[in-house]
């Protein structure tokens, strides 16, 4: 048991009863957000998102794969999250654990549902399609990986270059020519998410590590314009219908704020 974390949790509980957060933020206020695009020029697209002390690097690469039988005219997208050992004393090396899998799947769900990436444009021929891989590297962990990963992915997508592909239509093969590009990836909109922690019936936006470990329940809501595109409830306790609807409203408000960060960075 981590004694310091237990003490920290207690301070979160004591303070929130008076409506105060550990770092003096307002209940519905984000930490400082900083997004840097194209930090790994070798990748097709990349972005580093700093959300307070949390840092996530999203890297995008293209590969070639066979189309799925049920979607013969579409390419694919694939998300993976890596909790690197350097991000936290509690992260261990090895295959993705259930938290990393949940993170990647919830981010995947939002981008897939929104349809901002037109997978039909990834079609090459009947045997080959482009596959867009998003790898999310958690470099420093201080809570709220969901929003950091959504921001990093979104920013990385906006500076993603499509690869040049050499196609042999006789043998039905295709090969990516590395180092050469075929224009920018087109996107139809911006997806962002807002994560909330509920502690003693108080709703906090963008929980840090201690607030996350002290939370009774939480929720991630991913939004595009006036649509919800992904939701995942977190934590052990339940949420009331009214709490959920209140958080939906905040997510839509914060979407406008977050969109600017993606566009202006």
């Amino acid at each position: 048991m981590d004694i310091l974390e237990e003490i920290g949790k207690r301070s979160v509980h004591d303070l929130i009863a008076r409506g105060i957060r550990l770092d003096n933020r307002k209940l519905l206020e984000y930490r400082k957000i900083k997004i840097q695009k194209n930090v790994v020029p070798n990748a097709n697209g990349s972005a580093l998102c700093k959300l307070g002390k949390t840092q996530v690097l999203a890297g995008i690469k293209f590969g070639i794969g066979a189309p799925y039988p049920d979607k013969p005219d579409e390419g694919a997208i694939s998300f993976n999250a890596e909790f690197t050992g350097l991000a936290s004393p509690t992260f261990e090396l090895g295959p993705p654990n259930q938290d990393a899998i949940e993170l990647a799947r919830v981010v995947d769900r939002g981008f897939r549902s929104s349809g901002i990436i037109d997978l039909k444009k990834f079609f090459i021929n009947e045997k080959n399609v482009l596959v867009l891989y998003v790898d999310l590297h958690v470099l420093d962990f201080d809570g709220n990986l969901f929003d950091a990963c959504y921001l990093a992915t979104m920013a990385a997508l906006t500076n993603t270059k499509k690869p040049k592909v050499e196609v042999d239509n006789v043998n039905k093969t295709a090969k990516i020519i590395y180092g050469e590009f075929d224009g920018n990836l087109e996107l139809q909109g911006i997806v962002t998410s807002s994560t909330f922690a509920v502690v003693k019936d108080k709703i906090m936006l963008d929980p840090n590590r201690l607030e996350e470990s002290a939370m009774d329940a939480g929720i991630v809501m991913a939004v595009q314009d006036d649509n919800l595109v992904a939701v995942q409830k977190l934590g052990y306790d339940g949420l009331t219908k009214q709490q959920i609807l209140n958080m939906v409203d905040v997510s839509f408000q914060k979407h406008q704020e977050l969109k600017k960060f993606v566009q202006e960075s």
């Binding site: 769900r109 549902s113 929104s114 349809g115 929720i219 595009q224 006036d226 649509n227 919800l228 595109v229 992904a230 939701v231 995942q232 409830k233 306790d237 339940g238 949420l239 009331t240 219908k241 959920i244 609807l245 939906v248 409203d249 839509f252």
Partner: peptide
């Protein structure tokens, strides 16, 4: 109380 809530696909607030 909602112990689980997941959402996949495009949904408006009224629909949720």
């Amino acid at each position: 109380k909602f112990m689980l809530l997941q959402l996949d696909g495009k949904v408006k607030k009224e629909e949720l």
